[in-house]
Amino acid sequence: MGDKKMVIGKIAVLGERHFTMGFMLAGVQNVFTVVEGNSEQKLIELIDSKQYSIIYINERLSEQMDWKLKKRISNLAYPVIVPLPDIKGESNEAANIKVLIKRALGFDIIAK
């Protein structure tokens, strides 16, 4: 298991203005501000450009996406697409993972 590949890529942030602004301030160069409706198209564009290794996306946007695209994202090896919580600071992503774990292992190990 010694094969280690190195890929160098950039960070991209995709979301509405209130989501992207902070990342812009922190110094992320590749920030893509979208208005509601064309986020899917932009995301596909970003994936296909193969320049980015991580794409942060507003979780609300990623949840609204078409299931086909969602499926594609979940099967994708590269780039890494990470949904980050929206302004409310809540996230369903942890719950999603919980469901996955439960399905695979047969019991819920995160629950205490």
């Binding site: 298991m1 280690k4 890529g9 812009m24 301030l25 110094g27 992320v28 160069q29």
Partner: peptide, 27 residues
């Protein structure tokens, strides 16, 4: 804010090393 963020922008590269665990590629 936009002007400041433009001034503060820098290149952020991420190296992705792929580790292979039993055929699963873990970045």
């Amino acid at each position: 804010l936009e002007a400041i963020s433009l001034a503060n922008a820098r290149i952020m590269d991420v190296d992705v090393q792929v580790k292979n665990v039993m055929g699963v590629k873990i970045p």
